[in-house]
């Protein structure tokens, strides 16, 4: 069994929601990614078959969307907004702080597998800038001290 019962039933639900089941493609890949941390090659095959698409077509579509990962990321995946509004409020410092704290560069995973971080486009947090997301949750009005506390907190929890 490749997916949990829960994921399977979500697939079934998603494929039933739309007049054309192909519309469920991106939501299904997001659900699969939630279970595995990234979209595995087997997932591509599986979802393609589920929706009567070819695997190469699914690959092509996937490559268009930045939230779909084709390679593993850290257990905590940090996306730092570096667009204009955050840049004006000091996202440079946030970026430097995250890389220093984690000891890796953007796109890499820490040796313990806990963290990865990337620069990201506008997150829609402009009036609470600078901001970042970790596993989809917002962290806003950041400064260096706050970022250090957040990362230390997640390390402790792990």
């Amino acid at each position: 069994m490749m997916f949990s019962q829960e994921t399977e039933s979500k697939f079934k639900h998603l494929a039933s929601l739309y007049p054309h089941k192909r519309s469920a493609l991106i939501p299904m890949l997001l659900v699969a990614q939630k279970e595995h941390g990234y979209v595995k090659p087997e997932t591509v095959e599986y979802v393609a078959k589920y929706l009567d698409l070819s695997a190469s077509e699914v690959e092509s579509i996937m490559s268009f969307y930045t939230l779909l990962h084709r390679n593993p990321v850290g257990r905590y995946h940090i996306m730092i907004c570096t667009n204009l509004a955050c840049m004006l409020r000091g996202s440079d410092e946030i970026e430097a702080c995250v890389q220093r704290k984690l000891g890796v560069r953007f796109g890499e995973i820490t040796a313990d597998g806990l963290f990865s971080a990337i620069e990201f486009e506008c997150l829609g947090s402009c009036t609470t800038a600078p901001a970042m997301q970790i596993n989809g949750e917002f962290y806003e009005d950041l400064d260096v001290r706050k970022v250090e506390e957040i990362i230390d907190g997640l390390r402790k929890r792990a």
Partner: peptide, 18 residues
């Protein structure tokens, strides 16, 4: 799933079609 252009209305429609 993360694509600015899907805020353009026909980009949105294409994306919604999978």
């Amino acid at each position: 799933a993360g694509a600015y252009i899907c805020g353009e209305e026909t980009g949105l429609i294409e994306s919604l079609e999978g």
